[in-house]
């Protein structure tokens, strides 16, 4: 089982405080993110919707490649993981999916 570090963006501060990096373990990217959410349960609703899908405007970067987690991705020691806000989604239209 690989151990790696997930980098988190500053915008997630309301969910996890000042944490920027979390050491996680897992044989796959999916397992690593599950460990991330186990360590920081507030991230579960921030990264995933109620169907368990990665939120539409959240990027998960695995070794410089974006992944939508559609299939298990093996994780090796030294791999890099990062959560990023996509360049889309920041206007609020994703939050207020239906405007008043």
């Amino acid at each position: 089982m690989a151990t790696t570090t997930v980098r988190l963006p500053r915008v997630l501060e309301p969910a996890v405080g000042a944490v920027r990096e979390v050491t996680v373990s897992g044989a796959t990217v999916q397992e690593a993110l599950a460990d991330l959410c186990a360590q920081h349960p507030t991230l579960t609703v921030r990264l995933f919707d109620e169907a368990g899908e990665l939120r539409r405007h959240v990027l998960c970067i695995h070794n410089a490649q974006a992944t939508r987690l559609t299939q298990p991705e093996p994780l090796a020691d030294g791999d890099e993981l990062a959560i990023l806000p996509a360049v889309s989604g920041g206007s609020g239209d994703g939050r207020f999916e239906h405007r008043r």
Partner: peptide, 12 residues
């Protein structure tokens, strides 16, 4: 209550 186009709604 917060909301984010990236990270969805939540209660604080």
């Amino acid at each position: 209550a917060t909301g984010s186009g990236w990270f969805g709604p939540g209660v604080h």
